[in-house]
Design a protein around this nucleic acid. Structure first.
Lengths: 161, 161
DNA sequence: ACGATGATGTTGAACTGTCAACTATTCAAG
DNA sequence: CTTGAATAGTTGACAGTTCAACATCATCGT
């Protein structure tokens, strides 16, 4: 086979990419606006609250939170400050590493999350899970996993204690 | 079947959603940073330039551009102003509707796009197309199409003259 | 113990995106 | 033709994000 010097995508590949990009933008936009209008939370903020709840009482290191939410450290720092000002999150210092700091959900934060969660669930069920044909679901999951892995995503560890 | 009152996603559904979210954020972030470091263009700006090139000489109405790129009108207006200041795009008035306006690529814009395109292609091939198993590709495409359709995406019309 | 190196997290400035007006124009009805 | 409602696009203020610089602390070799 000869070395391809193509600088552009084939038409078929271009269509896959556009389909992916458009779907993602529409879905994130829908989620963000429904979360905001129903509970006054943005999608990024919702993501952080959800990750913190999953982490339990002790909360998460900033860097862990950054990695699991795919945020830069700077973004996490600003975002947590805002959430702290709203009373939904609190910062705690880390006993074993004095550089570090933890973020943990407050009661108000847990309440806000509980308020937003049904809408989050509904939008995802209706527009993502519900619109994928069951026969395609497994392939879809494999594909997104592969894309993530290819970009260095750490495997999701749900309660591997 | 009884009415479900579940407010949260099942574990399996949650994993699909996370996988999707993480993959999308990582991919967009990678594309954005590679485009920026190699050609000084952001992913949103690249998207606009590419849409304008596909539209040909006459350019596109702001509202068409907004729809095809999934941007709000306001965002388009700001973004086009910035691209205009960089000399990559020019605004033209619309002869048939004096409210309307067109955006069209300049020569410098076409050159910038040509400079950025190989990187765009490479990242997408490497991390998206290349990491999906061929057996999953068709399902993946169907799934993203369905998600988009469910959110009101217009079908892509590549040169349906 | 010490100094170099690297990691963690924060900060402020610049930039980008969003939201709510607002202008100008078209369109439809009477 | 005039009025009223809808549409196209722009604008400015504000909120959120990125980027580069920084202060602090851990780690490792010597």
């Amino acid at each position: 086979m000869s070395t391809r010097i193509t600088t552009s995508l084939t038409l078929a590949d271009e269509e896959i990419w556009r389909s992916y990009l458009v779907a993602a933008r529409l879905l994130f936009e829908e989620l963000d606006s429904r979360l905001d209008s129903s509970a006054g939370v943005s999608l990024p903020d919702y993501t952080l609250l959800a990750r913190l709840r999953d982490a339990g009482e002790e909360g998460l290191r900033m860097s862990e939170l950054a990695e699991s939410a795919v945020f830069s450290r700077s973004r996490i720092s600003h975002a947590i400050s805002r959430l702290e000002n709203q009373g939904w999150v609190e910062r705690r210092s880390c006993p074993t590493d004095r550089r570090g700091s933890y973020a943990a959900l407050t009661e108000a934060g847990a309440a806000k999350l509980a308020e937003a969660e049904p809408v989050h669930t509904e939008v995802i069920k209706e527009h993502m899970l519900g619109s994928i044909d069951v026969a395609d679901a497994e392939s879809f999951r494999r594909a997104t996993d592969q894309i993530g892995r290819s970009l260095g995503a750490k495997p999701d560890d749900p309660a591997c204690g």
